[in-house]
Structures are given as structure tokens and as C-alpha cells.
């Protein structure tokens, strides 16, 4: 899958770049699915020995073993393949808790994964602007219902039904880094029951 091109939007909507090797004591990668390609692309320009000080936390999702060998061939200091982000979280938190200033963080893959890993890294004291990210793969969104506060993962349609309270929500581009989620707002508040057909907006 090629690099994602996201439409220009409002200033709170995250923008993603292209991973590039930076100088630092240690390098932490957190990626899911096609995000592996961003790491492999970046590796082409990385200096010799770069990955010896790298720790890659990778959640392949539906891509299965597609990128396994190629990631292994980078010979990273630590490489973790995990079944889900939740499963990887204790490992990520342990890594950040012991890390020193100079750690470089690289995120790649879906917005949901990058947003949640960004939460952990900023919580650990790294400014969000110092964290690199590259979007690859699905554009499905993590959306918080502004009414019940529940977060629905992998939202692909607009509007959609909140998986917690059942309200029909339209998806705004307004994004909270703290929640790692876009905002969902009731679409039929002024005219109850008047709910437009959902449109596949995020795939």
C-alpha cells in the first residue's frame, strides 16, 4: 500500500509526515499493519548500526506475517510482534518509564494506533512535536461521542451509531490528542429521527 494522502483540514486535525532517522540515544518504533512499510522505507536512509539501538513494537493486524521477515532483517535490538495494541501496552509503558532523554519515537500505521501511542509518549514527557509519525493503511477513525464520552474504534461511515449510547453521530475533523480521538456529535439533535444515510468516508 502506498503512502496515504489525507485531505487538508482544520488546524486540530493531526498531520503526518514521513519517518526519517534522527540522532538520538535510542529509537522506539510503534507500528501496526502497513505501518511496517514506513519503517522499511525509512531503513533505506538510516545510517549503519542505527537499528542496533532500536526497539520495534509491531502489531501486524490483518497483514499477518507479510512484513515479519523484512522487519527481522533490519536486525533491531528488540523486535516485538503482538496480537493487539492492548497486549503491547504494558511493554510500551515499561519501555517509556525507563527511557532517558534523547529517545526518538517513530509512529507508523493507522491513526488510531498512532494516536494512542502518542498519548503514552507525551504522557511520559516527550513533546508531541518531537514525535515522528507516518500514516499508512486504513483511514478508519477513533471517535469519541461528545455526549456519553464513549470511544468507538474503527469508524468508517459518517454518520455512525455510537457503540456505547446508541446516538447517531456525525464525525467532525476536530481532534483531541489527549483523547486520541475525533469528535462525534449527535446528528439529529434539532430534528429527532432525521438521520441521513451513512456514507463510507473512512476506509
Amino acid at each position: 500500500m502506498s503512502k496515504s494522502v489525507l485531505e487538508p483540514s482544520i488546524p486540530s486535525r493531526p498531520v503526518y509526515g514521513e519517518l526519517a532517522p534522527r540522532s538520538g540515544k535510542a529509537h522506539l518504533f510503534i507500528a501496526d499493519a502497513e505501518g511496517a512499510e514506513a519503517i522499511l522505507d525509512m531503513a533505506k536512509t538510516a545510517p549503519d548500526g542505527f537499528f542496533a539501538r532500536a526497539h520495534i513494537i509491531y502489531i501486524p493486524k490483518a497483514t499477518g506475517e507479510r512484513y515479519l521477515e523484512r522487519l527481522e532483517s533490519l536486525d533491531p535490538g528488540q523486535l516485538y510482534f503482538g496480537p493487539s495494541y492492548e497486549a503491547a501496552l504494558p511493554r510500551l509503558r515499561r519501555t517509556l518509564a525507563d527511557a532517558h532523554m534523547g529517545l526518538q519515537v517513530y509512529l507508523a500505521g493507522t491513526e488510531g494506533l498512532m494516536g494512542r501511542a502518542m498519548q503514552e509518549a507525551t504522557e511520559a514527557g516527550i513533546p508531541h512535536t518531537a514525535i515522528q509519525s507516518e500514516h499508512r493503511g486504513s483511514t478508519a477513525r477513533r471517535v469519541q461521542c461528545v455526549h456519553c464520552k464513549g470511544i468507538t474504534e474503527e469508524v468508517t461511515t459518517d454518520p455512525f451509531q455510537c457503540s456505547h449510547c446508541g446516538l447517531h453521530l456525525f464525525v467532525r475533523d476536530h481532534y483531541s490528542r489527549r483523547l486520541a480521538a475525533f469528535m462525534g456529535v449527535c446528528i439529529d439533535a434539532e430534528d429527532p429521527g432525521d438521520i441521513p444515510e451513512p456514507v463510507e468516508r473512512f476506509t
Partner: peptide, 9 residues
Amino acid sequence: EAAGWPREA
């Protein structure tokens, strides 16, 4: 900067 410290820190 060379040690990888973020500008904001």
C-alpha cells in the same frame, strides 16, 4: 540537539 533532546525541552 545532537543528543536528540526536543527543542521544547
